[in-house]
Simulated scan of single mutants.
Amino acid sequence: MKSKELPLKGKHVLITRGGDQGEKFCMDVASMGGVPHMVPLIDFRAHHDQNASYFIKNMNQYEWIIFTSKNGVQYFFQQINDKIEEHILYKGNIQFAVVGEKTKEALRRYRLPSRFMPNVYTAEDFAREFFNQGLTGKKVLIPKGNLASNIIAESFRIRGFTADEWTVYETYYPTRETDKLILFLEEDMLDVAAFTSPSTFNHFLKIVDQHHLGPHAKKLLYAAIGTVTKRTIEQTGYTTHICPEKFTIDDMFNEICMFFNKQAKEGNVSNG
């Protein structure tokens, strides 16, 4: 691809997710001519739920285990490690449901198939599509993070079913690179900030407010991974400029490229 065709040429992109996903996002941005700046604004750690022993002991009573994130899958298996008989998950009557492709992939790494995944990756759509398909579950287990909503659980409960929520991990704000972010904002270095969850934006805004960087932050373009993150951004008075139809980091990256491609074409037309 010629340099003039690179949609992100010279654009500075704030990437608020760390780990493998953040690294891949950085490489994708660089491959399209952009300058990635990775400042993780979210991280995860195991959470020790007081009801964990009950969930593990009674695992074979659940008809469904529903995962709402890849972290839910990872920390669930970390918590049950060697504590239950393998046949309960692999040869028992438990079925598995996931909220999206990344979660499905994470589950597949443990050699387990997902019986259900909604077409749109939100809790609301999960609940609606699950019951519209005629699926049911008198007792379900939902391994989740401490900030995840209870929408799926409530959708089962209002139908008279039991839905146990097991908090297997918690989200926290890693402060180690705060100074870097403050500098980027003070120097107006960034063109677009990409947020992968409401938490990443909330942590970003906390830094902006604490250091009185609002005027700088208002100059940025904002990309949100999905409608929940978009809503979080806009409830604080900021504008979401980019939001993909499919709620994945890859789709958000593609949408950012298309946004700048369109801008470049419109600029060429107006200059012509």
Rank of each mutant, 00 (worst) to 15 (best):
I233T: 01
D82I: 01
G272Y: 11
L8D: 05
Y75K: 01
M59F: 11
R17E: 10
I207L: 08
K246M: 11
F96C: 01
D125M: 09
A223N: 02
M27C: 08
F126W: 06
S199A: 15
L89V: 03
V140F: 03
T236I: 00
L147P: 00
P36A: 07
Y110I: 00
I151S: 06
V29I: 15
F195P: 11
I249Q: 09
A163C: 08
H212A: 12
H48Q: 08
I249L: 13
E129A: 07
K230T: 11
E177I: 03
E187D: 12
T103M: 07
Y90N: 06
Q61N: 12
K57A: 13
L185A: 03
D179T: 05
F201G: 11
S3Q: 14
V140G: 06
N71G: 04
P113V: 00
T175S: 10
G10E: 14
N81P: 01
D49C: 15
P113N: 08
K104T: 00
I256E: 00
G34I: 11
I84L: 13
H216F: 05
K230G: 01
P7G: 09
D82N: 11
G34H: 11
F76H: 04
S155V: 06
A52L: 08
K104Y: 02
E266R: 13
N261I: 02
E5W: 09
S199Q: 11
A46R: 07
K180R: 14
F116Y: 07
T175M: 09
R115H: 04
E165W: 05
N60A: 09
K24R: 14
F184Y: 15
Y222D: 12
K262R: 15
Q79N: 11
F195M: 10
G33E: 07
L190C: 10
M117V: 07
F184M: 14
W166T: 08
I15Y: 05
F96T: 02
S270Y: 13
F116K: 03
F96R: 02
M59K: 01
F116T: 03
F161E: 04
K57W: 02
Y169N: 07
V29T: 14
S149R: 13
A30D: 06
I94F: 05
H37Q: 12
D209C: 04
A46L: 07
N93F: 01
E101C: 00
G18I: 06
K104F: 00
N271L: 13
Q74P: 01
L190G: 03
L89K: 07
G272D: 09
G72S: 08
T103R: 04
Q95K: 14
S199H: 06
Q78C: 03
